[in-house]
């Protein structure tokens, strides 16, 4: 499962419309949607946001992968709904549970869209455009570059220690933690060795030779990128306006699950029914 979660962050070198958008525009989009999603406490606006994002996931050829992620997260989503519905001491706990779950679903889509359509190189280029030091940006893209290497190496180390009789998933939690030592030490030692060798290599390739570094590829805004930014800012502006003026949302937006359908009530009804079966 852990590797599948990683897969979700994988960049797909694709040529979808959303791939053509400048990463800075997409980053702004992520920030705006994150703010709005977290700040709305009503069901319908969140559903509307979700409805607006679904077409985007199709545009980025991300829908299938997103659904797969949701499927993996399904137990967590259900847990969020059930725990909130049963334990929250508010008027409409089930609605709140669903809102929480919706936030998670929306955010997986938004962040997934970003990582799906922005290459790690673009992320580092974006950071450079945000005036972060090159060293930092380089570290980010290089870390990404070594993920497959690290995964591969971890597999080898695991196979090697298993061949020496190590049983990773045996015993209580402390024993299991101790069983990790023969894996972690070679992994760390090898990571250290690698970073040392990498430092030697970049040093020999003229690292920091001049202050005025050039770039083979750098980001350039196109007209549609300005449009994307404008739209994002407009949405955010509208949202801020709503928040500041404290306008009441129309009634239809304040929809909630009626109390007779509260999960607590449904569970209780089901329980009574089962009990009834036995007392007869």
């Amino acid at each position: 499962m852990s590797s599948k979660i990683l897969e979700y962050f994988d960049y797909e070198s694709d040529k979808s419309i959303l791939h053509q958008v400048d990463p800075r525009g997409k980053a702004l989009f992520v920030v705006v949607i994150t703010c709005i999603t977290i700040l709305f406490r009503e069901l319908v606006p969140l559903l509307l946001i979700l409805g607006a994002i679904i077409p985007l996931t199709f545009l980025a050829h991300f829908f299938k992968k997103w659904m797969r992620t949701i499927l993996i997260l399904l137990p967590l989503i259900l847990l969020i709904i059930i725990i909130n519905a049963l334990l929250l001491k508010v008027e409409y706990p089930t609605t709140i549970g669903i809102i929480m779950a919706l936030r998670l679903i929306i955010l997986t889509a938004v962040y997934g869209l970003f990582f799906q359509t922005v290459s790690p190189d673009d992320i580092s280029q974006m950071l450079i455009k945000f005036r972060l030091p090159f060293t930092f940006a380089w570290a980010i893209s290089t870390a990404y570059r070594f993920i497959p290497t690290l995964a591969n190496e971890t597999n080898i180390i695991m196979a090697a220690q298993k061949s020496r009789g190590l049983q990773i998933d045996r015993g209580n939690i402390f024993k299991r933690a101790r069983n990790m030592v023969p894996l972690l030490i070679p992994i760390f030692a090898s990571a250290m060795r690698r970073s040392w060798q990498l430092a030697e290599a970049i040093e020999s390739r003229g690292w920091n030779a001049t202050k005025n570094r050039t770039y083979l590829y750098s980001l350039k805004m196109k007209w549609w990128d300005y449009l994307v930014i404008l739209v994002c800012l407009a949405i955010f502006g509208l949202f801020l306006f709503l928040v500041i003026t404290q306008v009441d949302l129309p009634i239809w937006m304040q929809l909630y699950i009626p109390s007779k359908y509260e999960l607590k009530e449904l569970f209780k009804a089901a329980w009574d029914w089962i009990k009834g079966l036995f007392t007869k």
């Binding site: 893209s141 570059r145 690698r194 990498l198 290599a201 003229g206 920091n208 050039t214 083979l216």
Partner: peptide, 22 residues
């Protein structure tokens, strides 16, 4: 493997040139 830090072959070759501001 441990001396290539860029994400494509082309960018790896460009790396020293970029460092020198070419």
């Amino acid at each position: 493997e441990n001396q290539i830090s860029n994400l494509t072959v082309e960018k790896e070759i460009a790396f020293p040139l970029e460092n020198f501001g070419v």
